[in-house]
């Protein structure tokens, strides 16, 4: 094992460049999937006729498929259906849809966990359904959802590594290129890559735990 040549300046900057793209992918997908997930979760919770069952079908379909399949499909299948996206946006699309379905479930069960007594009390005191949702259910439910949603963001950051299969040039792809230089640097590079993911995710998970602790 050769740590010195593994951690040369060229290699480090090349890996950092890849990690930059990993973080950028994750950040965009986090924003999009959070917004979409909340909307889908609320629609499914509110039991709107027609719309809620459709959303439910979509959420369950996506949630029960491997993300890898969605990535392949967004990259190679969509163009056949006339929707052609650059690789970066194909990756964003697949990540967003998958994570949004997961977040929609978190949101829905968070809302469901709000005591029905509160809802009934609000309704009988004259609030409309919309007002009850906005003033009672959402504020209480949201607070309970935050820790699982942050864990989902951690999953998302890890999941970006799967885009290696469509050669985007994120962390894992760059790691593959660097590891190709020499067999003796494979292990040191794997360790370094693990360390980089770990640091970011661990900080995020500490943050999630603090939020959780504040609630109880």
């Amino acid at each position: 094992m050769d740590f010195t040549s593994a951690y040369s300046r060229d290699n480090l900057s090349f890996l950092l460049e890849g990690f930059g793209l990993t973080l950028w992918l994750a950040l965009l997908a986090i924003i999009f999937s959070f917004v979409l997930g909340c909307v889908l979760g609320i629609i499914r919770y509110a039991k709107v006729p027609v719309l809620s069952p459709i959303v439910g079908l979509f959420v369950e379909l996506v949630r029960n498929l491997p993300l890898l399949l969605l990535i392949f499909f967004a990259r190679f299948g969509l163009p056949e259906l006339g929707v052609s996206l650059p690789p970066f946006w194909a990756a964003i699309t697949a990540l967003t849809l998958f994570e949004a379905a997961m977040i929609a479930e978190i949101v829905r069960s968070g809302l469901n966990s709000v005591d029905k007594g509160w809802v009934e009390a609000a309704r009988s005191s004259g609030l409309s359904y919309g007002q009850t949702l906005q003033q009672i259910i959402l504020p209480i439910g949201l607070r309970r959802m935050v820790p699982p949603i942050v864990s989902q963001f951690i999953s998302l950051l890890k999941d970006t590594s799967l885009t290696v299969v469509i050669t985007l040039g994120e962390m894992m792809h760059h790691a593959n290129i660097v590891m190709g230089q020499n067999s003796r640097i494979v292990f040191p590079i794997l360790l370094l890559v693990a360390f980089m993911y770990f640091i970011v995710n661990y900080v995020l998970s500490l943050f999630a735990r603090r939020l959780e602790a504040r609630q109880t």
């Binding site: 069952p53 439910g56 369950e60 469901n112």
Partner: peptide, 14 residues
């Protein structure tokens, strides 16, 4: 945490 309505979509996929 899933209510009865939650089963419908799964059946839909089936």
């Amino acid at each position: 945490m899933m209510d009865r309505a939650g089963r419908l979509p799964l059946l839909g996929i089936l």
